[in-house]
Every structure is written in structure tokens, then in C-alpha cells.
Amino acid sequence: MTLVIFAVLLWVLGFGLNVMLANGPARDTGAVRLAVPLIFGLTILGMWELIVRGMQVSTVILPPPSLIAASFAENLSTLWGDFVQTILKGALSGYIFGCGAAFLTALLVDRSDYLRRGLLPLGNFMAALPIVGTAPILVMWFGFGWQSKAAVVVLMVYFPMLVNTVAGLSETTAMQRDLMRTYAATWGQTLWTLRLPAALPFVFNGLKICSTLALIGAIVAEFFGSPTLGLGFRISTSIGQLDLGMVWSAILVSALSGTAFYGLVALAERRMTFWHASHRGGR
């Protein structure tokens, strides 16, 4: 019981500190902006540990963070294998292939008004569908290996990427197009100097959405069949063995990879669309 009281104390302490920081004189500095969410996260972690131990919650329901950390450290090599299988082989290859194919399709579609008006509503429709449901079919077609996961990812990322790129390519103003006409620029020159740069914010928006979708596709597809490797496989089999420390470790790996993946895309976006209104606030 004392541990639970400690947890309450920790909450009061952490939140109080945050209130002080957030309303204090340094509230708009970068350090505080970083510290407040970190303190919040650490407080939650600490309370989790204390309450789970204090109330003696069964580890099946919720293992304490220390147990997850221990399990994570113990199984580093297994988890690394799962990471390579699911993230690098399944998600990343499917992501590159799917987004690349969608980008090329968008360039193709862009040349024909008929294709654009036909494919855009269809793509919007497909992007809202639960495409992850095709996983059992694709696992049946391409086998249990990473190829079937990549195939699911390709299907999942294709339509959101297509819709975003097509929308981006039509994101020029009448004046910009007129300017290119006064130069008698060719289609290729207009594409390269005007429409691709103007489309970049949309392209990156698509890439960011797709980075999360790719991970979801690769992990869920493993629930339908996989070799004895992979994050989805690890989660479903460890649940069967009630090894919740391992389950949470696998979830931690997928969460970290998801954030890192998204972060990398966002970083590239910042570098390449520094000129866009949403990024140049500070200058």
C-alpha cells in the first residue's frame, strides 16, 4: 500500500513540477519544452512501476516497466532479428516499392486528364478501405516469408501515396502556370522546375502517413502466418506462452521503429521543404 501512496506522491511531485515549469518564466525556452513532456512520461512510468508492485497486479495483465526493460535487455539479439525481419525486410522494402510505384503512377496519371479524373476518386475510396484485410490473401499467395509482408505493405501505402502525389502535382497556381507558358517551357521543364517542387509538401505528407501504415501492414500480416521470426510473430507467440515481458518488448521495438521511421521522413521533409510556410516560422 505504501508503494501506491508513493505513486500518488510522485504524481503530485511530477505534475507540480510541470505546472511550475509550464507557467514559470522560462516557459517558452526549448529546454522546458523538452523537459515537460519528459517529466510527464517519467512520472507515468514511475507510477506504473509503483502501482503494479504495490497492488501486486498479475504480470499477465500489466508487467512493471522494470520487468519489460529486463526482458528487453535479455532478448536483444532475438529482438534485433525480429526487427530486421519485420521492419527492414517487410516494411521498408514494401514501403520503398509501394511509394515508388505510386509516385510513378501519379506522374503517368498526370499526363491524362481522363486517367486523373478516373483514378483520383477511386484512389481516395481505396485509401479509406481496411486494406490490411488483404493480408490473409497475400500470405496465401506469397508464402510465409517477408515477401508477403512487403506485398501487404505495397497495397497499403500505394493509394494514400498516389492520392497525395496527384493532389500535390496539381498544387500550382494559375499564375505560376502562366509564367511557364510565357517562357514556352516544355512539359518536362514545367514538371521539373515548378510542379515537382510545389508537390513536395504533399509528397512528404503521403510519405509520413505511409511510414506508419507500412509498419502496421508488416506486423498485422505476420498474424496470418510467418516464419519463426518477426515482431508480429513474437507478439502472438509470446502471448500464447504468457511471456508478457517479451510481448511488451516487441511492442516497444515496434513503437521505437515507428517513431524513428517517421522521424527520419520528417527530417528529410524539413531539409527539402524548408521554404514551405509551415517550416519557415522561425526565420
Binding site: L62, T212, F223, G232, S236, A250, G258, T259, G263
Partner: peptide, 16 residues
């Protein structure tokens, strides 16, 4: 949290 594949939690939540 929007960047992590939350769906991966699904089977665990069900089983727990």
C-alpha cells in the same frame, strides 16, 4: 503515438 503501429497492441489487449 500517431507514429507507432498501435494495431500491434490489438492481440495483446484481447488476450489480456
Amino acid at each position: 503515438s500517431q507514429t507507432i503501429p498501435i494495431v500491434a497492441l490489438a492481440p495483446m489487449i484481447i488476450v489480456v
